[in-house]
Design a protein around this nucleic acid. Structure first.
Lengths: 251, 251
DNA sequence: TTATTATTGATTAAATTTGATTGATTTATT
DNA sequence: AATAAATCAATCAAATTTAATCAATAATAA
């Protein structure tokens, strides 16, 4: 048996039982104690397992590529719901811009079923999700890392400039009739503007907590969006005003 | 049978089983062990497969467990040691290119103590490390995600093109007097070339297992590097040849 | 046709992996 | 604390795998 193969099997066995004795592995894999021990210490070197006297244990934390997956748990349910709505606009072979917002990350988690997607994003969590769960061609905008969660700056702007996409999914910090769609951070706003410019269909994912708040940097006006998806039907005047402009809300 | 045909079949077989023995391939393809081995080493140099003693393993995606075992091709200690050597060349306020190799990731883990670094990398693990443990300004090249570990393609090339750095830390798949510094993957080689071009001091981190192997894509010649760091003093003629060129090895 | 080049399989020496043995170290039991 | 049992790391010989060499064959060009 190849040592590669054997170590693979040790990992598999460890996934079932969370820890095993050397003897057990010997019998299971028809190898001597010396061989198993050598395997275990190699695997320990590589950081794949934890070595304990008499055997080995699965390493805690399990996932090696988790570091930058920061995700806000606030309003998880709302964001989940909105992301589900957004799925209606995705189709196979679509080319897509996605911003770095946490709401859009929820959408990224739901794209597993589509084929032949090409996606450009400046979000790190979104990038990781797409890369892990989908077969999409994932382009990271690159750039300066901001807040552990997104890429911004000239590098990011330039790379986005070179793409044209069918649709742009994004979120914002604030949304109001007069102020439009606003962001707190200038650099992130610039990124969204660039994506907006190079996309055909602009789809905003906006949970209700953001309505009627204005932030420092404007991304675009209400009329500049093709679809606005929200978690609850908007009340009174504001929703009517929106519908008046021909923007689809939760439809 | 043509060698191309046979190698194609080896790939097909590998897609079913994720690793195979040389013996198995011999019987299946009616070829001698020598022939199969020649095929496997060719394919390895092109980066199509991972060679393991007794057989071969699939390298590309599909199975996420396989690359894990293959990735940091063991020798954690060697890489750790080389990274430590590399520290001597880093100084506060330096501007640095770092490639996506695992050896360079070890260096990234050691940069915590420096102030005011600006670092450009196309490596995902390196990016994560830097971002988590250092106060450096970290620029990701962005681009298409390759093998879950690096950014490649035009986007990455363009963003690197726009930086000039004091130093470039990189590794390679193979290093030899005649072949120079070589890589298995064309896209990654292109990235390294671009970083090489835009950096003043070029510092190779190369563990001894890579010496006297040539891979498919050339990055640069031996003479094109300013420093080569290895885990052990190189033996026989090779080291003398290197020193003859004025390149510093392990010094 | 002949000469040249490439590919293949056999042979062999070197390198690597393996399993058994040993003594040292750690853990459990009395 | 002392003893027994279990586990470990180191060592070595046997088995396996590899890389290098060379002759034979096949393919190609002159």
């Amino acid at each position: 048996m190849l040592s590669f193969e054997r170590q693979q099997q040790i990992l598999d066995i460890l996934k079932e039982h969370k820890c095993v004795h050397v003897d057990f592995l010997c019998k299971k894999l028809f190898a001597s104690g010396a061989t198993i021990r050598r395997d275990l210490s190699e695997m320990h070197e590589k950081g794949l397992i934890t070595r304990v006297r008499g055997g080995a244990a699965l390493i805690e934390g399990t996932n090696q590529d988790a570091p930058l997956l920061v995700r806000s748990n606030e309003n998880r349910a709302k964001k989940e719901y909105i992301a589900q709505l957004a799925l209606r606009y995705v189709h196979d072979s679509a080319t897509i811009f996605m911003d770095s917002s946490s709401t859009v990350t929820f959408l990224a988690d739901k794209l597993e079923g589509f084929r032949d997607l090409s996606i450009v994003t400046n979000g790190i969590a979104t990038m990781n999700s797409l890369n892990e769960y989908t077969t999409a061609k994932v382009f990271s905008s690159g750039g300066l890392i901001r807040n552990n969660s997104s890429f911004v700056g000239q590098i990011a702007m330039d790379s986005i400039y070179n793409f044209r996409a069918d649709m742009f999914f994004f979120s914002c910090c604030g949304l109001s009739i007069e102020g439009g769609c606003t962001e707190a951070d200038e650099d992130n706003a610039a990124i969204k503007k660039q994506m907006w410019k190079n996309a055909k269909k602009r789809i905003l994912l906006c949970d209700s907590t953001k309505v009627n708040h204005d932030f420092f940097c404007k991304v675009c006006d209400i009329q500049d969006m093709d679809v606005i998806l929200m978690d609850q039907p908007q009340d009174q005047s504001s929703i009517e005003d929106l519908i008046g402009t021909g923007i689809i809300v939760n439809k």
